[in-house]
């Protein structure tokens, strides 16, 4: 009887310890990153800060732009039995197989910043509202140009033509420009590359010297625009009658500095903190088997040369 009692006590003690171990088991989230550049680093930092707040561990892997590497990295995260995977895809089709494997292993997947075409391989998406971001930048440009008569030539520096955020920014920007019926948009691809943006801007101004405004799909290309306009003697500050309107999307230090000195008119800043917070909040809910909505887009906010000081804290690239 005594032996039986001892056995029961031992079993209860073991169960209690096991329960405590399970409760204390750290939640580990795999973060599969496409590649590192300024805004992605800021976005990842926001995700890490949100995870730290909840005591979650982040296992970060960076594919450096290689879809096959990312595929292997996601498989490695599955083998490590992470509790959830946050992925920003290099190429959505290449990683499809790995994400299917994650589904079979019952690991929830949250796509961030770049949406995936196959809705069966992820539980939720969080990213910028790129259509709205492009629209806000276009809206400000329309305000600046509305009093011009005759044809208004506008140069649009596109991102990459295979990148949904770039496509959506362009879509939003062009929607806003519809309010200016006399505007003619000249769109040139840049593949997010500042050197290409510089050449494209230079060529566009050669062919169309009367361009009145430039929209950059990413504000990191604004220094390239500045180089060209300085060379052409057209870099007049905001307020000058010959000023060329410059707007963009992103929120980097390049855009901040250009707006601060009056070269650029205004920039739409992606709300990276909220994207980071939402990504982790969704991961937490999914780990707890709670139901979540599929799509979550976060609109950016616009700042211009008039309110830049007030908004400095909201600009993720300011003062870097």
């Amino acid at each position: 009887m005594k032996a039986f009692k001892k056995l029961v006590i031992l079993a209860l003690l073991s169960a209690s310890l096991l329960g405590q171990w399970v409760m204390a088991k750290e939640i580990r989230i795999g973060l599969a990153v496409d590649q590192l550049f300024e805004s992605r680093v800021a976005e990842n930092n926001a995700i890490k800060a949100a995870a730290k707040k909840r005591g979650f561990q982040i296992i970060e892997v960076v594919a450096d732009g290689d879809a096959q590497t990312q595929n292997a990295q996601i498989q490695s995260l599955i083998s490590q039995r992470v509790d959830a995977i946050l992925v920003c895809a290099v190429d959505q089709n290449t990683i499809n197989g790995a994400l299917m494997r994650a589904q079979r292993a019952r690991i929830p997947v949250i796509a961030y910043d770049r949406k995936l075409p196959n809705e069966r391989v992820y539980q939720a998406y969080v990213g910028p509202d790129s259509v709205q971001d492009g629209f806000l930048a276009g809206q400000h440009m329309v305000k600046q140009l509305k009093d011009h008569s005759g044809e208004i030539l506008v140069l649009e520096l596109l991102g990459a033509l295979n990148d949904q955020n770039g496509i959506d920014r362009s879509k939003g920007f062009q929607q806003a420009l519809q309010a200016l019926p006399n505007a003619k948009i000249i769109s040139v691809p840049t593949d997010w590359d500042s050197a290409k943006a510089l050449a494209a801007t230079q060529n566009a101004f050669q062919a169309n010297p009367s361009i009145k405004a430039v929209f950059a799909a990413t504000d990191t290309q604004i220094p390239s625009i500045e180089t060209v306009l300085i060379g052409l003697g057209k870099a007049h500050p905001v307020g000058h009658p010959k000023h060329i309107v410059v707007t963009g999307v992103n929120g980097s230090n390049d855009g901040y500095q250009a707006t601060k000195k009056g070269f650029a008119d205004g920039i739409v800043v992606m709300n990276l903190d909220q994207i980071g917070e939402k990504s982790i909040a969704l991961a937490e809910k999914l780990i707890k088997k709670q139901k979540v909505e599929k799509n979550h887009v976060v609109a950016g906010y616009f700042y211009h040369s008039g309110n830049i000081v007030k908004n400095k804290d909201k600009i993720w690239g300011a003062g870097q």
Binding site: F37, E38, L198, S224, E226, T227
Partner: peptide, 8 residues
């Protein structure tokens, strides 16, 4: 020409 270093 580009006015700074960019990671791309």
């Amino acid at each position: 020409r580009v006015g700074g270093l960019q990671s791309g």
